[in-house]
Measured scan of single mutants.
Amino acid sequence: MDVFMKGLSKAKEGVVAAAEKTKQGVAEAAGKTKEGVLYVGSKTKEGVVHGVATVAEKTKEQVTNVGGAVVTGVTAVAQKTVEGAGSIAAATGFVKKDQLGKNEEGAPQEGILEDMPVDPDNEAYEMPSEEGYQDYEPEA
């Protein structure tokens, strides 16, 4: 019985440690998101679009440190934060509304985080759909 109880105690310690790591990862992701939003706020009209992409990228980098179902929630929060940063930029006159959601080359930025393969159960990952990809044929 002692062996059984000791095993359960060790398992509990492992769960607590994993929860603490997840909590730490979420806190880091939130900190990076805040950094990115402050970065966007300090940019001029020309830099705002690039700044919004930076927020998304920093958040995406930190999301990889967070495991399990938390990833889905962090990704949703990050996307809403990026959308909010863009709205703030438009409201303050840093950028025109028609410039939001495009990178410096004018290509749409939507789907940055949505296409990231995420499995809350950590069982399997699927690649994003290939609808947006084109076949590449090298020139002879």
Rank of each mutant, 00 (worst) to 15 (best):
M1P: 00
M1E: 00
M1F: 00
M1K: 00
D2P: 02
V3K: 04
V3L: 07
V3R: 13
F4W: 03
F4R: 00
F4T: 00
M5L: 01
M5W: 13
M5P: 00
K6V: 03
K6E: 03
K6T: 03
G7L: 15
S9P: 00
S9R: 08
K10Y: 12
K10L: 08
K10E: 01
A11Y: 05
K12H: 06
K12R: 14
E13M: 07
G14D: 02
G14L: 12
G14E: 06
G14S: 10
V15Q: 00
V15T: 01
V16L: 12
V16S: 04
A17V: 10
A17K: 13
A18G: 02
A19F: 15
A19T: 04
A19W: 12
A19R: 02
A19V: 12
E20L: 05
E20V: 03
E20F: 14
E20N: 03
K21I: 10
K21E: 00
K21A: 15
T22F: 10
K23I: 04
K23N: 01
Q24V: 07
Q24L: 07
G25V: 14
G25Q: 10
V26S: 00
A27L: 15
E28C: 11
A29T: 05
A29M: 07
A30P: 01
A30M: 13
G31T: 10
G31D: 06
K32P: 00
K32V: 03
T33P: 00
T33F: 08
K34S: 01
K34P: 00
E35I: 13
G36S: 12
V37K: 01
V37W: 14
V40T: 01
V40A: 03
V40I: 13
V40C: 10
G41C: 10
S42L: 08
K43T: 03
T44Q: 00
T44N: 01
T44V: 06
T44A: 08
E46K: 08
E46T: 04
G47A: 11
G47F: 09
G47R: 11
G47Q: 14
G47D: 04
G47Y: 15
V48E: 00
V48Y: 10
V49Y: 13
H50Y: 12
H50G: 04
H50L: 11
G51C: 14
A53F: 12
T54S: 15
T54Q: 05
T54P: 00
A56E: 01
A56F: 05
A56P: 01
A56N: 02
E57Q: 10
E57T: 05
E57M: 08
K58V: 07
K58H: 09
K58P: 00
K58D: 01
T59M: 04
T59W: 09
T59G: 08
T59R: 01
K60M: 15
E61W: 15
E61H: 06
E61F: 11
Q62S: 13
Q62Y: 09
V63Q: 01
T64L: 12
T64C: 13
N65V: 10
N65K: 12
N65T: 09
V66I: 15
V66P: 01
V66C: 07
V66M: 11
V66L: 13
V66K: 02
V66A: 11
G67N: 05
A69S: 03
V70M: 08
V70W: 11
V70F: 03
V71P: 01
T72D: 12
T72E: 09
G73S: 15
G73A: 14
G73P: 02
G73F: 09
G73D: 01
V74Q: 01
V74D: 03
A76H: 10
A76C: 12
V77H: 01
A78F: 14
Q79N: 07
K80N: 04
K80R: 07
K80D: 02
K80E: 02
T81I: 11
T81C: 09
T81L: 14
T81R: 03
T81S: 07
T81G: 04
V82D: 02
V82C: 06
E83D: 08
E83A: 14
G84Q: 15
G84F: 13
A85E: 02
A85N: 02
G86I: 08
S87V: 07
I88S: 02
A89V: 14
A89H: 04
A89Q: 04
A89R: 13
A90L: 13
A91E: 05
A91H: 11
A91I: 09
A91Q: 08
T92V: 13
G93A: 09
G93M: 04
G93E: 04
G93C: 06
F94Q: 07
F94K: 05
V95S: 06
V95N: 11
V95H: 14
K96V: 11
K96D: 07
K96N: 15
K96T: 13
K96P: 02
K97I: 06
D98Q: 06
D98Y: 03
D98A: 09
D98F: 03
Q99E: 10
Q99K: 04
Q99M: 14
Q99W: 14
Q99F: 14
L100K: 03
L100Q: 11
L100E: 06
G101P: 08
K102Q: 02
K102H: 05
K102C: 09
N103H: 11
N103P: 10
N103F: 10
N103T: 08
N103G: 07
E104S: 03
E104Y: 08
E104F: 14
E104M: 07
E104G: 09
E105K: 04
E105C: 05
A107T: 14
A107K: 07
A107H: 05
P108V: 08
P108R: 08
P108S: 05
P108E: 12
P108L: 07
Q109M: 02
Q109G: 03
Q109A: 05
E110K: 06
E110R: 13
G111N: 05
I112C: 05
I112G: 07
E114N: 11
E114C: 15
D115F: 04
M116G: 05
M116H: 12
P117H: 08
P117E: 02
V118A: 09
V118M: 07
D119V: 09
D119T: 11
P120G: 07
P120M: 05
P120Y: 05
D121E: 12
D121V: 09
N122P: 06
N122K: 12
N122G: 03
N122S: 06
E123R: 04
E123Q: 10
E123H: 09
E123I: 05
E123P: 07
A124K: 14
A124R: 10
Y125M: 04
E126C: 14
E126H: 08
M127D: 04
M127Y: 10
P128V: 06
P128D: 12
P128F: 07
P128S: 06
S129H: 08
S129C: 07
E130K: 09
E130Q: 08
E130N: 12
E130A: 08
E131Q: 07
E131F: 08
E131G: 02
G132N: 13
G132I: 08
Y133P: 09
Y133L: 11
Y133D: 13
Q134I: 12
Q134W: 13
Q134E: 06
Q134S: 05
D135H: 10
D135A: 04
Y136I: 07
E137W: 05
E137V: 05
P138W: 10
P138V: 08
P138Q: 04
P138L: 06
E139F: 09
E139Y: 13
E139V: 12
E139G: 05
A140Y: 11
A140I: 04
A140W: 05
A140E: 11
A140G: 12
A140Q: 02
